[in-house]
Each structure stands twice: as C-alpha cells, then as structure tokens.
Simulated assay, not measured.
Amino acid sequence: MKGYTRPITLIFLILLVDQISKFWVKLNMTIGQDFTILGNKFLIHFIENPGMAYGMEFGGEYGKLFLSIFRIIAVIGIGYGLHYMIKNKYHRGFTLNVALIFAGALGNIIDCVFYGMIFSESDFYTKAVLFPEGGGYAPFLYGKVVDMLYFPLIEGNFPTWFPIWGGEHFLFFRPVFNIADSAISVGVVLILLFQKRYFKEEHKEEESVNSEMLED
C-alpha cells in the first residue's frame, strides 16, 4: 500500500465533502433557493444539472444515458491510470492531481447513477425526500448532478463601443458548480501549471536508470 495512502485519503475526503454538501442541499433547499455566504459575491444556489460540469447539457435522454456511461468508462480509465502511476512511482504531485480528477469524476457519477433512485424530485416549492415511498425521480443512470457553488463576482454592462456585446449585460462568474467540479478543475490546472516539473523529474529518473544499466 506504500504510495497509495495519500491519493486514497485525498479521494475519500473529496468524495465525503462533495456528497455531504450535495445531500444537505438536496434535503434542505428548493430549486433556485439561495443562501448568501459572502454578500452577493458567494452564494449557495441550488440547481440540478442533467448534463456535464458547470451546467452544460448534452442532448436528450439518449444523450444523458451516453454521458453517464461515458463517465463510468472514463472514471475506470482514470482509476487504472492512477494505479499505474502510483505503482510505477510517478511524481507524487502528479499522482495527487490525478487523484483529484478521479475523485471529482467519481463524485458526479454517484449523482448520475444513484440520485434518481434514492431522492424524490426537487422543484421550486418542494424539498427532496431521501428514499421516498413511491421511489425516486429517475431510473438508474438518469440522475441529475447537484450544483450549488455560485460566485457572481462582477456584474454590469459592456460599454456601447465594445465589439459584438456592446451595451449587453454580463456576469462573471456565471456557472454554478460543486465540489467535484472544483476538484477536477484544480487537478487539471495544477497539471498544466507544473507539468514541466512533473515530467522533468520523470525524465531524469529514466536517464539515471538507463545509465546504470549501461554501466552494468
């Protein structure tokens, strides 16, 4: 288990926080309801996303089914890749970043796979119930992802001289997301920022092993 402790612990913590936050929102808020955290700059804003991360959608029932199956296949692939990286002693920072991506992907898969079966429907007037008598709101693989983190940091209108959107209203940052989405984004960004460091050290290790083999 050497080398697996930190990635597994990180995955467990991300999943725990992600699922606790989603359960709380689902059971205590109605769709569209807000709780302000930092004035109007950070809100808990409950929406459900039938599609991809950050509120993007992928067409219709067949699109939803395809997306759920694709997510499951992707997370299996990421999990295998993470196991391979740990086993072959890739850079620790790199494996932790991949663990973040894996945890985020798995967190949203849990929503898609199980939430439709264990929760009643949420709407603008009614809070969801866990394990309702009449069954859940959707079959296996058709659950909706719970999103709640909303950061409308800057709001205003583009200047009239601005190309294309002149005079139109704008809002930054518009997407509503969750802990799982955040984990995926952070993992990807850190890999992009530190890729030279990660793969430079791997290259040095390969050169060292090759030189030792030649000397023998």
Rank of each mutant, 00 (worst) to 15 (best):
R92C: 01
F23W: 12
H169V: 03
D111Y: 00
V146T: 14
G134M: 04
E207V: 14
V209A: 14
Y198G: 13
D111A: 03
P159M: 10
G51S: 02
K144A: 02
A105G: 14
W161S: 11
Y137E: 11
G167I: 04
F131R: 02
L153V: 06
F124L: 13
V188M: 10
F42Q: 00
F58S: 04
C112L: 01
M85V: 09
G55F: 07
I20K: 07
F199A: 02
G3T: 13
I20M: 11
N157Q: 10
T9C: 02
Y115S: 02
I20W: 08
A105Q: 10
E205H: 06
E212A: 15
I14Y: 05
E201K: 09
N40K: 10
I184W: 00
D123S: 12
R197F: 11
S208L: 15
L65G: 02
V176D: 05
F172S: 00
H203D: 15
K26T: 14
E202W: 14
A53G: 12
T9M: 08
E205M: 08
N28R: 09
S122N: 15
L149A: 08
M213N: 15
L190R: 01
C112Q: 05
K64A: 04
H83I: 14
I78P: 06
G32P: 08
R197V: 12
D18L: 11
I37G: 10
G166S: 08
L15I: 10
N108G: 06
D111M: 03
L65V: 06
G55I: 13
E207S: 14
M56G: 05
N88I: 03
T30E: 12
